[in-house]
Design a binder for these strands. Structure first.
Lengths: 173, 173, 173, 173
DNA sequence: AATGAATGAGGGTTCATTCAT
DNA sequence: AATGAATGAACCCTCATTCAT
């Protein structure tokens, strides 16, 4: 991975996240990266390939976010960590996460699959805590954190910390 | 509103919802509507104008969805109706709602403002029911219905009816 | 067929014939035709389509060149007219015919099929004249007019009229 | 001439012959040759230089094809060898000869000059045999073998052996 | 000798938009 | 109101070529 390749990825990430995939031209990416447009295609094949390169890194980051939760034995802790997940996101990674959400809509990339490990960890946790419908409860919680992340990234005025506190209380944690 | 205008709006709605705003060319819209491309510009000024026309109708539909909730005096009913809102969506309107969600991300159109009446109705309801933080509770519930709608429209496998039942139980309704 | 469409075809024919298909850019065609580049694609779909449009006219012209020969009852006349065919080509049509020959090589478009009616007419003529191998004789004569046309169009110094006289004498016509 | 230079020439020959000069990119040549693209320019200066290198070898091969004919004292033998020339072409050299014909059209390289020695040899032969117009007869025969080679290389269905027999008979050889 | 990163110009094509009819 | 020809800018991408290593 040369220095210019990194520059391209960085510029593309930022622009895709801010303006969207289709609304970002490869020439804009090149200009922002301080690189000739042709270089993008030499390294990533085509615009789609550039996107894939970014997304691949995305899956890795998501996995490393999940690993702590999935490995946690205490069910209450699983739920707590899940709820607090959105707070773990570094501000410098906003563009990155924004892109993930954006693409789910712009390119109809389903996020279900990626969430599966989290889903299972939560289902297990709720089962251990004797919730009536552990699967449903897991889905509901995922719905919440997805919604919370979504709201935060879209710049909603909602205060995530308060929301997290409220949720923790509701789950008696 | 002539017949051809309707045809254009219909075609645009479908295409914008399915492929996205930027990925849909005006020529595709014209072809699908069975209309000359120029006519789109005659009637809606430009591509953006076409979008606005669709969105305006969107706000109206949203308002009419909300009106029942906002007018409801019984706070428990307000919450129940809110939770069951997603079930009220007709399958034939899927494209329409999909577009609304899609655009929030593709064009960074905040949905906060549109949700304000619902937000206030819910806040009021929770206050009447002596919830500790009615504002937060309202936001949380909105988060939920937003997440649920989002999941359904993206074709998630999750069962909305079960989810609604679970929620109703949680709110003791 | 609008006026500008004609202009495009004319310019393309000239450039394709002179520089070759691949060596001619659509922008060059547009400039020469005094037309915006986009118009080419509106009317002909793509560069290939533009070529096809030219070639279609080619087949028609070829057919009308053949018709006199194919309809001729006197076998000697068939042969004579075939031999003299190259002389029938108008100087203003040089570009057109050059393109036909050029493409046979540049794009590997076989000319065999187009020559079939002429082939049959000649075979018949040679058979009536009791030549030993009429099919072969027909092919040989086609080889000759193809070669002669080719030489003339490539700007060879060879004198076609003398060549034609020589041939006529050989076939005793 | 290093091993890699040979590889490049070989690959270029094949590609130029099959796809044409303009339609073949230097990168394709490099890939086929298993060589870095830069090396092509190190060795041959530019794409044109690469072509020239191939063509130079072409002239040599042509000369060596002609030498037998030009050196032949018996006029009848001169004619026979000329007519049978196309049969002398090795199948493994098809690409090479195809390229020669192709370029005559794609790049407007006249073949007249290269044919001069053959032309003179034939003229002489016909003169010795007391043909009326030896120059014309020479040109005509060249026209034939050019056409025959052309047809064979373009993959025509015509049977070259039969054609050669027919010609030999016509020239009473 | 050989590589592979890098470039700038140009490739074909699509786009939103305008205009005469 | 409606068409369809026409445009120019921008699109993604490929090209031949250069250069540091």
């Amino acid at each position: 991975m040369t220095e210019k390749q990194e520059k391209i990825l960085q510029a593309a990430l930022q622009l895709f996240a801010q303006e969207g995939f289709h609304a970002t031209s490869t020439s804009k990416v090149a200009k922002k990266a301080g690189v000739s447009e042709g270089l993008i295609f030499r390294h990533f094949g085509n615009k789609e390939g550039l996107l894939q390169a970014i997304l691949e890194e995305g899956e890795n980051r998501l996995k490393s976010l999940f690993v702590e939760i999935v490995m946690e034995p205490d069910p209450k802790e699983v739920i707590r960590k899940t709820i607090e997940m959105t707070n773990k996101i570094d501000v410098s990674d906003y563009d990155f996460w924004k892109l993930q959400f954006k693409l789910k809509w712009e390119l109809e990339i389903s996020g279900d699959k990626k969430m599966e490990p989290l889903n299972m960890a939560l289902t297990n946790a709720f089962r251990k805590l004797n919730y009536e419908s552990p699967e449903l409860e897991a889905q509901l919680l995922i719905l919440f954190i997805d919604g919370l992340g979504s709201a935060v990234l879209k710049g909603s005025k909602l205060n995530p910390d308060q929301m997290i506190q409220l949720l923790l209380k509701k789950y008696k944690i």
